[in-house]
Simulated assay, not measured.
Amino acid sequence: MSKPLKKYKKELKSLFNNVPKEKKPVYDHICKTIDEYPNVDTMSYDELVEQFGEPENIYYQYINDNDLYSPVQKHKRSYKKIFITVLVLILIAFVVEFISIAYEARKSFIDREVVEITYDN
């Protein structure tokens, strides 16, 4: 493998490290496609870029085509999960507090007797 080809694949690999694990075979498929191209070992880096495109462009095209989340979107999703979890915990706390208050109210209920006093005249 020539130095330009190694450099090209190394750049691709560094970009595809951000892809989810189930999508990793895509990098292998891209490398296989590049390797099958005739005379790829004799090409310079510029010829590789001209033939296949910039590694960044390949990566971003793949991301856009497969509707993968960017790191910013992943953080937004994690914030949503945290928000929903906190909201559920707060609701559970309110329900437990309400049940506790209702239990204490029933426990402290005083039975009252009605006493009638009658006066004889």
Rank of each mutant, 00 (worst) to 15 (best):
R112Y: 13
F83I: 04
E116W: 11
Y59L: 01
Q51I: 12
E11R: 02
Q61N: 15
E36P: 00
E54G: 00
V72G: 03
P55Y: 02
Y27G: 00
F98S: 12
A93R: 00
S70F: 04
D67C: 08
Q51K: 15
V49T: 13
E47P: 05
I110H: 10
E22N: 13
P20K: 01
Q61A: 00
Y8D: 00
H29I: 07
D41F: 01
K107I: 05
L48E: 05
K74A: 06
T85P: 01
E56P: 01
F109Y: 07
K81F: 13
V96E: 02
L89A: 15
I82M: 14
K80S: 09
T118K: 13
F109V: 02
K24F: 05
R112N: 14
D28M: 01
N18L: 09
S78E: 11
Y103Q: 13
I84T: 14
I84V: 15
N64S: 08
K7E: 14
L5G: 04
K81I: 07
I82F: 04
E50N: 14
I84R: 13
K76A: 09
N17H: 04
P4K: 04
K9L: 15
Y79L: 15
F16W: 08
E47S: 11
N57T: 12
K76H: 13
V95Y: 02
L5R: 05
F98Q: 05
Y45F: 14
I34M: 07
P4F: 03
F52E: 10
T118L: 11
K21G: 05
V49D: 06
E116H: 11
M43F: 10
E113G: 04
K21W: 10
K107E: 15
R106T: 05
D41H: 08
I92C: 11
I58P: 01
D67L: 08
Y60H: 15
A105P: 04
N57R: 10
F83T: 13
I117G: 04
A105Y: 10
K10W: 03
F109D: 01
L87M: 15
P20Y: 11
M1C: 09
K107Q: 14
Y27R: 08
K3F: 00
M43E: 03
F98V: 09
Y79A: 06
L5Y: 02
Y103H: 14
I90F: 14
F94R: 01
E104S: 10
F83G: 14
V114W: 06
D41Y: 08
K76V: 12
I84L: 09
L91H: 08
V95F: 06
Q73V: 15
K80N: 15
I101G: 01
A105D: 05
P55M: 06
T85A: 06
I30W: 00
D46C: 11
T42F: 10
E113H: 06
L48D: 05
P38R: 10
K23Q: 14
Y8H: 00
R112I: 03
Y27K: 07
